[in-house]
């Protein structure tokens, strides 16, 4: 009775039924499907990376004026016309005299070998500049994502599907919290917990206690954002017949929520994780500025101010690489949590 005529097209039911009759051939079909999926995902990941690199390269050309002059002016910190004699070494150093297509291919080749080019301002490889600061930002991002998951899981499990009032309150909180600007939240946390209560250091602090407030600043809006989709899925799952079946077996409300519903509800948030990493890294730009933490955020702000494009595009490309890699991991985690995906 619940069948829909549209979906009835035979395909779903048949592919579903066949493994029941032949488990061995199913195993083979399954591994073939997995292999196919991996190839397809990796292919599209490569396309995304190539696209990101291309955008980054052409952004470097977008500065108005002669590139060598621009570079020299950025380095000198003042804008003026330069003589060919002054420009020649810059042209040679950055290979600007070569045709554009050669520069482009060279740039791509560089990226593959981990060479992001040289900073306009500092005469140093971008990789070195980013490398010095990357650790702190990654630590911050990962801590923030961990906090966000903890906050989100606890909050949603406590408030989802608990009657209209609590549900409305819960989802309103999600939305409000998700919209909090990082700078404001960071300042508030700083004022209350560092300056007021003195629980955490005010400035930086390389130890783990210095990581708590910055990570929370990033985690709270992220938790609100993830809660929105998790809550919707949580409430949908709570209405599913299998939840009723579990209750009818004598399972309590908490048991059902934690061992059945949460797994279903976590799926959309898992999908968001790749995006979340990017969001926390870009949020780190603001948070590092508020808490005076070292990290690629401060490097980035300085580079944007100085129009030091290789550094900016280097960071942007790196984040795109992270995004792609994390998304591949997310796919793996997703199939672990929801094994049905391999089939369909």
């Amino acid at each position: 009775m619940t069948r829909t005529s549209f979906a009835d097209a035979g395909t779903s039911a048949e592919t579903e039924a066949s493994p029941a009759t032949a488990p061995t051939s199913f195993g083979r079909a399954r591994s073939r499907a997995v292999a196919r999926q991996i190839v397809r995902k990796a292919g599209s990941a490569l396309v995304v990376l190539w696209g990101a690199a291309t955008v980054a390269f052409f952004a470097q050309l977008a500065l108005p004026g002669d590139r060598a002059t621009v570079i020299l002016n950025i380095r000198a910190g003042q804008a003026q016309l330069r003589t060919p004699a002054e420009l020649a070494p810059i042209r040679a150093a950055f290979g600007l005299e070569r045709p554009l297509i050669v520069q482009y291919l060279d740039y791509l080749r560089g990226l593959i070998t981990g060479d992001f080019g040289n900073s306009y301002q500092q005469f140093r490889p971008v990789t070195a500049i980013i490398g010095e600061q990357l650790g702190a930002t990654i630590a911050l991002s990962l801590t923030a994502i961990l906090f966000a998951w903890l906050l989100m899981v606890v909050w949603v499990t406590l408030t989802a599907g608990r009657g209209p009032r609590l549900t409305a309150f819960g989802s309103l909180t999600d939305v409000v919290v998700a919209g909090l600007p990082a700078y404001w939240l960071g300042i508030l946390l700083l004022l209350v917990f560092a300056l007021g209560l003195r629980w955490f250091p005010v400035l930086g602090g390389s130890g783990p206690e210095g990581l708590v407030l910055p990570a929370l600043t990033l985690a709270i809006p992220l938790a609100g954002f993830m809660s929105q989709s998790t809550r919707a899925e949580f409430e949908r799952a709570l209405e599913q017949p299998f939840v009723l079946t579990a209750r009818m077996r004598g399972m309590g409300d908490w048991g059902v929520r934690i061992s059945h519903v949460l797994r279903h509800a976590a799926l959309p948030a898992i999908t968001l994780s790749g995006w979340a990493l990017g969001a926390t890294i870009s949020g780190a730009v603001i948070v590092e500025s508020i808490f005076s933490r070292p990290g690629i955020g401060s490097v980035l702000v300085a580079a944007v101010n100085a129009q030091d494009l290789p550094v900016v595009t280097g960071i942007v490309t790196l984040v795109a690489v992270f995004y792609v890699v994390v998304n591949l991991l997310v796919d793996v985690v997703h199939t672990l949590v929801d094994p049905r995906l391999v089939q369909s």
Binding site: V47, V48, A52, G278, A279, V285
Partner: peptide
């Protein structure tokens, strides 16, 4: 193209444009 754009977080994409 959308996939590529989505790989850049919003703030970074904005910063890239402001740099230019």
């Amino acid at each position: 193209l959308l996939e590529v754009m989505f790989a850049f977080p919003a703030l970074l994409l904005a910063l890239l444009l402001i740099t230019v």
